[in-house]
Every structure is written in C-alpha cells, then in structure tokens.
C-alpha cells in the first residue's frame, strides 16, 4: 500500500494505491490519520468494530472515513491500526484500534471535519486499486 497527500488550496487530499480493496480502505484510513496526528505516538490499546452498508464503492469510502472521523469527534479516539476484514459489494467489516486522545502525549496536527465526495475516486487500476479523497479541514 502506498499513499501521498494531494495539494489543495484550502483543504487537503490523499491518493492511495493498494493491491486489494481491503488494503485500499485500510490505507485510506491510515493516510487520513497521518494528517491528523503523528501516528508513531499512538498505540493500539482499544478497539472498535465497524460495519457499514453503502450504495457503491465511492459511497462506502465516504461512509468509512466519516465513520472514523465520528470516532475522533464524538469518542475522542485516535486510531492507528485498521484491520479491514472484508469489502464485498458495498459492505465493509473492520476492526479499528487506537487510544483516547491525550493532548499532552499525542502530537495533534490538523482536525479533519469530513471526507467529501468532491473528486472522490475508488477504482480498479491495472493489477490493483486506487482511491482519491479530498477532506474538509
């Protein structure tokens, strides 16, 4: 899995490449959290199960990343480990791990308000998968 950030005048985006859909969704989550926090300082001490249904793969990516943003915003978690069990059709099952935000210990960088649909891509490319997501920060 590889990811990089995309230049955007006001906000920030990510591009992710992976061999499988599961890896792509896990990679997108990791890329997003790497914008929010220095992931080296985050430990996987607690876990949450995530189960989602969507209308297509783009919608599923939108739901997935916004679900994780919800865990940050409402439950004050930072996440570092994303075990995406299966992505089949428009369903996703995953276990995500991390810990509660501790502003004294974690190097918090940018708050992400949401993942947007703007120019979002989730598609098969060659032997693998590609995703592009722009966030509102």
């Amino acid at each position: 899995m590889r990811f990089n950030t995309i230049e955007h005048t006001a906000d920030i985006g990510i591009e992710v490449e992976a061999e499988s859909l599961e890896e792509l969704f896990a990679g997108a989550a990791r890329a997003m959290f790497s914008i929010m926090v220095d992931l080296d300082g985050v430990s996987a001490v607690l876990s949450r199960e995530v189960s989602l249904d969507a209308s297509d793969l783009v919608d599923l990516m939108f739901e997935w990343l916004n679900e994780l943003i919800f865990l940050v915003s409402a439950n004050r978690l930072v996440l570092c480990d994303f075990e995406v069990g299966s992505v089949s059709g428009e369903r996703l099952e995953a276990t995500v791990r991390g810990e509660e935000i501790d502003s004294g210990r974690h190097s918090l960088e940018l708050e992400i308000k949401a993942a947007t649909f703007h120019e979002m891509v989730v598609e098969e490319r060659g032997e693998g998968w590609y995703a592009r997501v722009i966030f509102d920060v």
Binding site: T9, A10, T116, H118, E119, I134
Partner: peptide
C-alpha cells in the same frame, strides 16, 4: 478559491 462542490 478551490473548495469542494461549490467554490469557497
């Protein structure tokens, strides 16, 4: 400037 959906 460039936003998402509508411009800012």
């Amino acid at each position: 400037h460039w936003g998402y959906g509508f411009p800012i």
